[in-house]
C-alpha cells in the first residue's frame, strides 16, 4: 500500500471572536493519497476552507489558531516546520487556488509578474527567464495571446481567465498537492466546467493530488476519488465517491444530495432544502450537531455525540448513531432521483 501524501490527524483550528471561541475545525482527520482527487464538501461555515488554510498554516492571525493536531506532508509535520522551510513548501510542493480570482490576485501587479514571482522566489530565476516561463504557463492553461496578456492587470482579465491564471501560478513548480478552494464558485456556470477541465488536465500533466473544496456535490461527481462531508467543523461522513453518492449513511449527506439541482430534474421531485441554518460554531447544539435540523433525530441524538464509525468494509465512515443499522437508507425522493441517473 502506498504511503499517503498528506495526513491530517485530529486537527483543531479555533478563532477568537467578540462572541466567543469559534471552533471552525474541531477534530478532523483524513488522508490524501498521491495523485488522488480528494473532495471536501459542506455548507459555508462547515470548516472546509479553514481546514484547507490550516494545511498551509495560513489561518489568519492573531484571531485564528491551530490549537492541536498534526499535518504530516511527506514525513514532515507542517505545523512544526520553521518559518523558512514552511515558505519553501508553500507555492512549491503544496499550492492553493482560491475561490474568488479577482480578489486573490494583487490588483497592482501584472498577471505575468505575479506568476513569475513564484519562479523568482523558489528557483531564483532572473526577471526575464521567470517572465518567459510565466508566459509559457499562461499558454498551457489556455490563455490566448499569452505574451500580451502577461503584461495586463487582473482587472483586465475575465473571471474565467483570472482563474486560469491562478491555476497557472499554482502548477508553476510541478507541485505534489493542489488545494482548490471552491475554484468555480465565483464563476459563470458556463465557465465552471472549463475551469474544472483545466484543473484536471493540469493534474494529469503534473501528477499532482488535488484537495477539492466545494459546497456543491454536483461538482464532485465523476471528478473525485474520495469525498469527505463536513458539518459544523467535524467530519460527518467520508468514503469513496461511489459510496457517498450511492450509499450515503448520514442524514446530512442525504440533505445535500436532495438539494442539488440537476439537469434531469423533473417537476414532481422537488428540491428538498435542509431546514434551518447551520449552527453557531460558538454554541454548538449538544450531542450530534446536526440533530436540530435532522428529520430522523431521536432522543439520543441530542444527548451523545456520535463518534465516527465504519459503515462499510471499504473504509466508509459516518458520524451518526444509526449509521450501522442495515435499514438506515435515504428517503424515497433520493432513491427515486438516483434511479433515474
Amino acid at each position: 500500500m502506498t504511503k499517503p501524501l498528506l495526513s491530517v490527524r485530529d486537527l483543531r483550528t479555533h478563532f477568537d471572536t467578540d462572541e466567543g471561541v469559534v471552533k471552525a475545525v474541531d477534530g478532523v482527520s483524513f488522508e490524501i493519497m498521491p495523485t488522488e482527487v480528494f473532495a471536501i464538501v459542506g455548507e459555508s461555515g462547515s470548516g472546509k476552507t479553514v481546514t484547507a488554510l490550516s494545511v498551509l498554516n495560513l489561518v489568519p492571525k492573531p484571531a485564528g489558531k491551530i490549537v492541536s493536531g498534526e499535518i504530516i506532508f511527506q514525513d514532515t509535520n507542517i505545523l512544526q516546520l520553521p518559518k523558512d522551510e514552511l515558505q519553501n513548501l508553500r507555492g512549491d510542493r503544496i499550492v492553493m487556488i482560491f475561490q474568488d480570482p479577482l480578489t486573490a490576485l494583487n490588483p497592482v501587479f501584472s498577471v505575468g509578474h505575479q506568476i513569475a514571482e513564484v519562479y523568482r522566489a523558489h528557483r531564483g530565476l532572473g526577471k526575464k527567464e521567470a517572465h518567459r516561463n510565466a508566459v509559457e504557463l499562461l499558454e498551457l492553461v489556455g490563455i490566448p495571446r499569452p505574451d500580451q496578456r502577461a503584461r495586463e492587470y487582473p482587472h483586465q482579465f475575465s473571471g474565467g481567465m483570472r482563474q486560469r491564471a491562478m491555476i497557472a501560478m499554482a502548477v508553476a513548480l510541478n507541485p505534489d498537492l493542489i488545494i482548490a478552494d471552491e475554484p468555480t464558485t465565483a464563476l459563470d456556470v458556463t465557465i465552471q466546467a472549463q475551469i474544472m477541465e483545466v484543473l484536471l488536465r493540469m493534474r494529469e500533466e503534473f501528477d499532482a493530488a488535488i484537495m477539492l473544496i466545494t459546497h456543491d456535490l454536483g461538482v464532485v461527481a465523476g471528478v473525485a476519488d474520495r469525498v469527505m462531508v463536513m458539518y459544523a467543523g467535524k467530519v460527518a461522513e467520508m468514503g469513496t465517491c461511489e459510496e457517498v453518492y450511492f450509499h450515503p449513511r448520514h442524514p446530512y449527506t442525504w440533505g445535500l444530495m436532495t438539494s442539488i439541482t440537476r439537469a434531469d430534474q423533473r417537476k414532481k421531485d422537488r428540491l428538498i432544502p435542509i431546514r434551518g441554518t447551520p449552527p453557531s460554531l460558538v454554541n454548538l447544539p449538544s450531542g450530534c450537531p446536526f440533530h436540530p435540523r435532522c428529520d430522523f433525530a431521536e432522543k439520543i441524538c441530542s444527548e451523545d455525540y456520535p463518534d465516527l464509525r465504519p459503515v462499510s468494509s471499504h473504509g466508509q465512515i459516518a458520524s451518526c448513531h444509526f449509521a450501522q443499522r442495515p435499514d438506515w437508507t435515504p428517503p424515497a425522493e433520493l432513491v427515486a432521483g438516483r434511479a433515474r441517473r
Binding site: 508553500r90 482560491f98 480578489t103 494583487n106 522566489a121 491562478m166
Partner: peptide
C-alpha cells in the same frame, strides 16, 4: 485575499 495568495505562494 491577494496577501493570502502571496503567502500561499511561499514568498518571504
Amino acid at each position: 485575499d491577494y496577501v493570502r495568495t502571496a503567502r500561499a505562494k511561499g514568498l518571504k
